[in-house]
Amino acid sequence: MKKILLALGLAVSVALPALAQAREVTFTTELLDYGGDGAYMALYLTDASGAYRGTLWVAGKKSKYYKHLSGWARGSRLDPAEYDGLTGASITSGRTLKITLDLDDALIDSGHEVRVDTAVEDMRDNRADVAVPLTTEGAGKPVSGRGYVRSFRYDF
């Protein structure tokens, strides 16, 4: 369980500093028993047009493998400032990653999407293993991924 105040340099939160209200959001990602080495994962936000907005979490310590998380790598341009302090260990096959972050209210129900890119050594990379809109309605409803993710959900 990680608890971090997310300091995203997002346009929305900069534009509305006075109104900014944070909400605690927990992201739970359960992996399949895919049977390989530990998975690298990137959880990040995109806007309604699919453009990268910010990094939520990166699982996996070695930055030389980050390019395999290709959707996130493109968006973040692998700029260390984008993921500084938001990294942890890679996730072993069949295990669950649970992180809790304080997210700006303005990011919810505004067309933003949570995406999860996954990669495992010597196995396929999955750009947008999970892609799910961040809405009040969608909270608490698990969705299944198309790669190594068995189920993903977020709770407010």
Binding site: S70, M123, R124, D125, N126, R127, D129, R146, G147
Partner: peptide, 24 residues
């Protein structure tokens, strides 16, 4: 098709997505 990888042995692998499921 999402990605095509050719390893040094000459083996070519396609990563694709079909009906919402990923395959290689």
């Amino acid at each position: 098709t999402e990605q095509i990888v050719r390893d040094l042995s000459g083996q070519v692998v396609v990563y694709y997505s079909r009906d919402g499921q990923a395959g290689a």
